[in-house]
Amino acid sequence: MRSNWWKILGVLILLYVFIVGMLVPLKPGITSAQPSVLQAGEVVTMTISGYNTFFTKSTDHRAWIKADDTHALAASAIKVLNDQQLEASFRLPTYLPSDEKRLTASLLIDNSFDGATVIPGNLFLQQDSTNQAMGSQAWQTSSIGELHSKSGMSFPFRAILYETIRNTYFHVSLWLAMVILLITSLVFSIRYLSTTNPIDDYKAMSFTSSGLLFGVMGITTGMIWAKDTWGTYWTWEEVKMNMTAIALLIYMAYFVLRSSFEDMEKRARIAAVYNIFAFAALIPLIYVVPRLTDSLHPGSGGNPAFGGEDLDNTMRMVFYPAVIGWTLIGVWISSLIYRARKLEEQLYDD
């Protein structure tokens, strides 16, 4: 029991990942605001549709059209239709705070229950003639005051991604766990070449198997995600998916190579050599592929991202454990394959 603590830990962590990752709600967000093209000088009544919002639960609704950091226009009246819909009226001044005829702006709404939500760059403002000084003055009168924030645990709301943002705990962490397992297999291959101990070869083989399994799962979750968000199962622009596909090709070839040898010592040695060579040849891909095209992948080319600064603290609380949990389960699977392999070998010897 004492030596199995990490297996229990792995299962518990994954249980936590599944429960928290699936059940914690998304932050309230705005899915649409109609009309989105606004003419200066008019009075507009805008219908705002929310996601995961509870508009009826609070009365202190406020809304702004935000042209930039210093210029915003407050709504003159707000009517709650239901939990998901809101009508906000804006009295647009004759001039916009810009010397251009067109301007993109964001919509910001705030109430004490849902907290503040924003739909960035979704509104288009038009004016027939420009007067930046007057526009600037008219838009400054209603500055944004103290904003509320939603209490409780929630995941970020992102357009296009919506609920699929939870796939981060599966697709991305499976990919990372695969890389960790394959690196472990590489370490055992290197160790085999220096020790020529068959145990190291079995271990390398077992870690490759579980890495391959995680690669298949990572690719499947990635494909479903890509279909949902980009409308296609496979895209060249997705670096992780293509790298995983190439890694799968290489490690499937690794198993074909292994099966073509009868002699155990020769099989172990040549498989180890191929494992090291293939890994070294794959590293440049991380640098090469992103240079080829502007990627569709989250994090580049203006796509909704959740890597780096966009992976918020709540998501980190699930994402990092997910990587550890998947890795521990991968090590467990590898150890089972390794033991089965060793028993098989003993069986053939007798």
């Binding site: 074909v256 190579l257 073509s260 191929y274 090469v288 592929v289």
Partner: peptide, 17 residues
């Protein structure tokens, strides 16, 4: 067969560049 299946995935970074 081995020659092709072992080398093609490895050569992808070179081909792309």
């Amino acid at each position: 067969t081995l020659m092709a299946i072992l080398s093609f995935p490895i050569v992808i970074p070179i081909i792309l560049t």
